[in-house]
Design a protein around this nucleic acid. Structure first.
Length: 292
DNA sequence: CGAGTACCCTGTTGGC
DNA sequence: TGCCAACAGGGTACTC
């Protein structure tokens, strides 16, 4: 289940393997994969044919490949192929003729007859679309906040926005309009680092504690990124089809009943937002001021 | 508009 | 062994 660091690894792979190449043909083998594309699968393919992909960008977990205008490779991108990997999506670079993956959804062939780009997605929560760029950002991504790894991310603005909310801290961490790219795993790890409970009320959270949790979220992401992108199940594979590494040490996520790395208390799992939350009952006690 | 919930999807896991 | 419910979960659409 790719989170931001994994998506960044995929972006880097795409920049290396796909940027500068011209699309010869697109085959959609599962229409659900392009359900966000207004014109349907035939229109999706038609809009890509002959277009040159100029790079690879990302905000949070959204990835996009800007395309040179119909005028040719030199014209300014005004559209992009937008991708979201969902829970199980992969973007693979594969030699033409290599066997189709079981869950192959979209295939891009290029005019140089080089490696294909393949979108593979078992659970089809992810998808692709051709979208307009507005100030360089896909229109469907405009409502998503910058992510903590973005150089223009404003920590103090995030702290202020967080404290204007009247909700629980984890819910706010997962709110992609405040800050994008923080998923369930990273939220739990950041809360553990900051020694805060998922239900801590946001509106009364002291600013230094708010800064602490954002610093922790960023630190966990940077650590994962430096390790080459983490992966927590076999569904995630990077752009070249190599498995991500599996040995990164998580402190709480998925560790029910195991000892806390700080204090030895046994990690507990709780249901919240129809998801699992993991915490140390000693380091992250239930706050007096709780919301969820 | 802010807050909170249901749903989408399918392969895997675990209880009985 | 087989069956079925629970689970994984980001984003959207929806209600209140």
């Amino acid at each position: 289940m790719p989170e931001l660091p994994e998506v960044e690894v995929v972006r880097r792979g795409l920049a290396r393997w796909v940027a500068g190449r011209t699309v010869a043909a697109v085959e959609v083998t599962h229409p659900r994969a392009v359900r966000r594309h207004p014109g349907g699968d035939a229109d999706f393919a038609a809009r890509l044919r002959g277009r040159t992909l100029t790079g690879a960008s990302r905000r949070g977990k959204y990835l996009w490949l800007p395309m040179a205008g119909p005028g040719g490779p030199g014209s300014q991108p005004d559209e992009a192929v937008l991708a979201h990997l969902g829970m199980s999506g992969q973007l693979l670079v594969r030699p033409p003729g290599s066997p189709d993956e079981t869950h192959l959804r979209v295939r891009f062939a290029f005019t140089d007859d080089g490696p294909e780009l393949r979108f593979v997605d078992q659970r089809t929560f992810g998808g692709l679309a051709v979208v307009d760029l507005v100030d360089g950002v896909p229109e469907p991504v405009a409502h998503i906040g910058r992510d903590p790894l973005d150089p223009d991310f404003d920590d103090e603005a995030w702290v202020a926005a967080l404290r204007r909310r009247r909700t629980g801290l984890k819910r706010a961490l997962l709110d992609q309009s405040l800050a994008s790219g923080i998923g369930n795993i990273y939220a739990d790890e950041a809360l553990w680092q900051a020694r805060l409970h998922w239900a801590r009320a946001t509106d009364t959270l002291p600013k230094p504690k708010a800064r602490l949790v954002m610093d922790a979220a960023r630190a966990v992401m940077v650590e994962a990124l430096e390790a080459g992108g983490t992966s927590f199940d076999s569904l995630y594979v990077n752009v070249n089809g190599e498995s991500g590494y599996f040995d990164r040490r998580l402190h709480v996520y998925g560790r029910t009943g195991e000892p806390c790395d700080r204090c030895g208390s046994l990690i507990v799992r709780e249901a919240f937002m129809n998801r699992s939350s993991f915490r140390c009952p000693h380091c992250q006690p239930r706050p007096r001021q709780a919301r969820w």
